[in-house]
């Protein structure tokens, strides 16, 4: 260093500081992830037991589990995904295959992106006005539809992106064989983009299974085991919200156990979705 002139030395010093700061930034990011996961494990494992999966949420001060909430989360998520998948895939197909480059197509893509980033609480308000107020009761259907509205733009967007990656030669080859357009789409283009579309669906599942805000005024919450889709239904996020903010120790313990379950389930889904994309590449 001593042979360098002062300006160069200052430049190198400045560079070292910048490099160190950005490494620290990355370390902070990783540290936060580790801290959150550690909190979940250390506080959640104590509450985990077989009962969590077999018994319904208890009244304060007694023993119970999260079975109704876990069931509710699965049902609501499935309802949302079952509604959103066909619509999302078809819409993505239209925007990517039929409306490519057209002005209306671009506008529809933009509107999809607006929906994608609309605050989820607003979707809750919308479905509340659409499906809860007219029927006079909170219902699992409303919750499922609210989640579908959140999943729809995710699936639509990933389908668009994945279909854009399918080489045109495949479409031309199929068309040259005399295949009608819908067969080109379903038998060739969708098949080529299968794992990509599946990734989009998995990411949508991961996204909606942790959503709380849109469920607050749609499927609400239910202390008891309920399989009736026309009534309010418990779900893990809403139960976590209710129990964590309560002053009761055993409710809080269950909230942390639920938090642990849902976070690791969602992170696992994210990792599986990523692995699918990687294998493709």
């Amino acid at each position: 260093m001593s042979t360098l002139n002062p300006i160069t030395r200052r430049r190198y010093r400045r560079n070292a500081v910048a490099v160190a700061l950005s490494a620290i930034a990355a370390a902070i990011g990783l540290l936060i992830l580790a801290a959150i996961l550690w909190t979940l494990v250390s506080r959640g494992v104590g509450g985990l037991s077989l009962k969590v999966f077999t018994e319904s949420t208890p009244p304060p001060g007694s023993d119970g589990g999260l079975a109704n909430a876990i069931y509710g989360s699965i049902v609501l998520t499935l309802t949302g995904i079952v509604i959103a998948t066909p619509i999302g895939v078809l819409a993505g197909t239209y925007l990517s295959e039929y409306a490519r480059g057209s002005k209306i197509g671009e506008a529809a893509k933009f509107i999809n992106d607006v929906l994608l980033s609309a605050p989820s609480i607003i979707i809750g308000l919308f479905i509340n006005a659409l499906l809860v107020v007219p029927f006079g009761t909170f219902s699992a259907w409303a919750g499922g539809v609210a989640l579908a509205v959140i999943a729809l733009p995710v699936i639509n967007r990933t389908t668009q992106d994945m279909l854009a990656l399918v080489p045109n030669t495949l479409r031309e080859a199929a068309a040259a064989l005399g295949a009608p357009r819908w067969k080109v789409m379903t038998f060739v283009v969708w098949r080529a983009a299968k794992s990509g579309i599946l990734t989009g669906i998995l990411l949508a599942v991961a996204r909606i299974s942790g959503e709380t805000a849109p469920l607050l005024f749609t499927s609400f919450n239910n202390q008891y085991w309920s399989t009736n889709m026309s009534q309010s239904m418990a779900s893990l996020p809403t139960v976590i919200f209710q129990f964590a903010m309560s002053p009761y120790d055993d409710w809080q313990r269950l909230a942390w156990a639920g938090a642990l379950i849902i976070t690791f389930a969602i992170l696992a889904l994210n990792i599986i979705a990523r692995a699918l994309v990687d294998r493709r590449r």
Partner: peptide
């Protein structure tokens, strides 16, 4: 993965 953690967490 930080983006995958639900907001309630």
């Amino acid at each position: 993965l930080l983006a995958g953690i639900p907001s309630i967490i």
